[in-house]
């Protein structure tokens, strides 16, 4: 904690969890789906579902999907902006009580028809936790440079990827492995202290069994 956690952040109101946090969830979804989607369906849970209109949670998530930051004054006009920019959107309320009360599940479809799912929760003070990418349950908060490496669950994967990072002097702050089942689809989530460049992303994508590597830049 530092002074700017207390006097700050600069943000668009009215609520750090329902507005600023929601922008960040949208921003992560944009990064994971590789840019601005052509169409998004957003499912809201708990208090997000109950109060989204009054808190502007809908506008905030759309603003994040359009690449805005939580202090962008265009957030309140984001729904019109999305229409102008050709991003179709739909909101659904979910009654499911099993998930964290401030959660959004974003299903984004790009112009080629490829679908990406990102689920995130706003956990207070504008901070978020991403808890699902496509079919895999994950856990990261977007504070670091974050690399998502979906791959086929085979031995030696971790070493192959982390060696590439080490070669460039990149320090891993946290790293986790998630998989749907043994030998099935898996996802490595690597958070690093230093910036990661596109070249490194391509090198990782060239590793056998790696399907893709997605880089998410820090969102705070």
């Amino acid at each position: 904690m530092n002074v700017f956690d207390i006097i700050g952040p600069i943000m668009v109101g009215p609520s750090s969890s329902h507005t600023a946090g929601a922008v960040r969830i949208g921003k992560i979804a944009r990064a994971v789906s590789g840019g601005q989607p052509a169409m998004v369906t957003i499912e809201l849970y708990g208090s997000f579902a109950q109060t989204y209109k009054g808190h502007g949670t809908d506008k905030a998530i759309i603003a994040g999907l359009l690449g805005m930051a939580p202090d962008d004054e265009r957030i309140k006009d984001s729904l019109e902006l999305a229409r102008d920019l050709g991003m179709a959107f739909k909101f659904k309320k979910s009654g499911n009580k099993a998930v964290h009360p401030n959660t959004a599940l974003i299903a984004a479809v790009d112009s080629q028809g490829k679908k990406t799912i990102v689920q995130g929760s706003s956990v207070g003070g504008g901070r978020i936790m991403v808890n699902r990418i496509n079919e895999i349950n994950v856990k990261f908060n977007g504070e670091y440079y974050t690399l998502l490496v979906p791959h086929h669950d085979t031995p030696g994967m971790i070493a192959a990827v982390t060696n590439l990072l080490a070669d460039q002097g990149i320090n891993i702050a946290e790293m986790n492995m998630y998989r749907s089942q043994r030998g099935g689809e898996a996802m490595m989530v690597i958070e690093t202290d230093q910036a990661i460049n596109e070249e490194l992303v391509s090198l990782i994508e060239a590793v056998n069994s790696v399907k893709k590597a997605v880089l998410i830049k820090p969102i705070y």
Partner: peptide, 11 residues
Amino acid sequence: CMGRIVAAPTA
């Protein structure tokens, strides 16, 4: 009204 403020300490 969704204007820009500084959380101090909260919004």
